[in-house]
Design a protein around this nucleic acid. Structure first.
Lengths: 253, 253
DNA sequence: ACAAAAGTGTTTAATATACACCCATGT
DNA sequence: ACATGGGTGTATATTAAACACTTTTGT
């Protein structure tokens, strides 16, 4: 029995997991979406009526796995992203989650029980975008980072799930110093501030922001500056993992 | 088709809801649990080997209902409690949720598909304990308020669910003024403080606590005092719903 | 008179907010 | 020389924390 057969046998037809993976680049928040191309075949085995569906990475859970494990497996299978910390944030169980005709069609081609009512458990994670350049693994589908502001209509209730994930992020970022999760290893205070501003949708006072961040003792100043910028080059910092973990954990395990 | 038959037809075998209903009385937190008495019958139709199971109120969801609706329905059916605001707080999906032999036995007597792997969506709510005196409705099972510190071993992973609900409460109560939900209509500042102390597991400064509470403008002082207490009688207060709702909503809808 | 909880203010420390100018670099 | 974002300090207001004695009632 290969992996795919095993999956079919063990998949729970009523419970799925969807992953909201957020990254940050070029001063904007992005979300990782998968593009599901599929086409129905006619009696001659030829593809016709090709469709493109854009969705959060997600799938049915297996009956023998924990929800957290399932989320990790599914993300890996669909995008190649491995070994990141994800956090469950909400179950979505509207019986009308499958509203669009296109969703129903897709289910018919992909699921053994396309009529089943599915509850989905939504996960979210913050990643350094640079670490996860979309690539077409043998198993992975085509995945792509979409700027939050340019996210199109998604499958099922995925727009709503994304919306709520952003609310969660907004909340968390004001209570825990999570910004670091989204930035490259070396970053400037300006970058950090712009990140916060784009998450919170609000301007922050530069001097107060810097004082606050420095008071947290989470920044390690590097003796290094930006290169080749048309203004005074910024000092670069690293993030002090040890202090962060001692604080309370937050999103990191 | 009566209600019970309808239920059987429509129940989703893989998704359940469990409710953590918290109350406060005699200076301690309490949780509403149901006692499931059941017995296997032998070939003569006689009951033998009677069992008592204590659990959170919960059951499978119906395929045609929203999770929130399901939680409300199930709570009503099991305890008679109606029309309270409940909030989803987490999905529990450990494949080993059914560990104890007793749980497996119970499932056999109650479920059409006792082997199914079930994910449960946990809800929690705060209620004025005085409003919900357990009573044996025609449909309701025997339910009882248990002091948090005296909760016995519960069915499935219900002890873990309860534990997490208490963490959620602890968090929420430090961010939103929810204490009121748990007190009778008229209460003293001393009662309110003791409530907070028992939730947070920590002593609070009396003068600072009172100043804080008064600054929130959520208390309406009544021209009324405690009666028949062997000390200076406390002023009684009511809770100002309007101001609270304007604040942010919190747990109230 | 005593026990028991209610009620009350002030001082100090910590934290948050508002605000404006000079600096280093590339073009 | 100018445009661009980097970098810095101080004064004021708000909020949090620490702390002890008097009052009212029932027994």
């Amino acid at each position: 029995m290969n992996t795919q057969e095993l999956n079919k046998v063990n998949l729970n037809p009523h419970v799925s997991v969807d992953c909201v993976i957020l990254g940050y680049d070029s001063n904007e928040l992005k979300v990782l979406l998968i593009e599901r191309k599929y086409s129905e075949e006619n009696e001659n085995g030829q593809a016709h009526n090709p469709k493109l569906d854009i969705a959060l990475p997600g799938n049915l859970v297996r009956d023998d796995e924990d929800l957290d494990t399932s989320a990790k497996r599914i993300l890996k299978e669909l995008t190649g992203i491995d070994n990141i910390y994800m956090e469950q944030f909400r179950a979505f169980g509207n019986p009308n989650r499958v509203r669009k005709e296109q969703d129903a069609e897709w289910l018919k081609t992909m699921r053994t029980d396309p009529q089943a009512r599915v509850i989905t458990i939504a996960y979210f994670a913050l990643v350094k975008l640079e670490d996860y350049v979309p690539r077409a693994d043998s198993f992975a589908r085509r995945s792509e980072w979409y700027p939050i502001k340019k996210v199109p209509k998604l499958a099922f209730d995925h727009n709503e799930i994304l919306e709520q994930a952003l609310q969660v992020l907004k909340f968390k970022v004001t209570h825990y110093p999570l910004g670091f999760e989204l930035l490259p290893e070396k970053f400037s205070l300006g970058q950090l501030q712009r990140l916060y501003e784009s998450i919170l949708g609000d301007d922050l006072d530069k001097r107060n922001f810097r004082r606050k961040m420095k008071s947290l003792k989470l920044l390690i100043p590097l003796k290094e500056k930006q290169q080749g910028v048309a203004h005074k080059p910024a000092e670069l910092y690293m993030f002090n993992m040890k202090v962060y973990e001692q604080l309370q954990g937050g999103i990191l395990k």
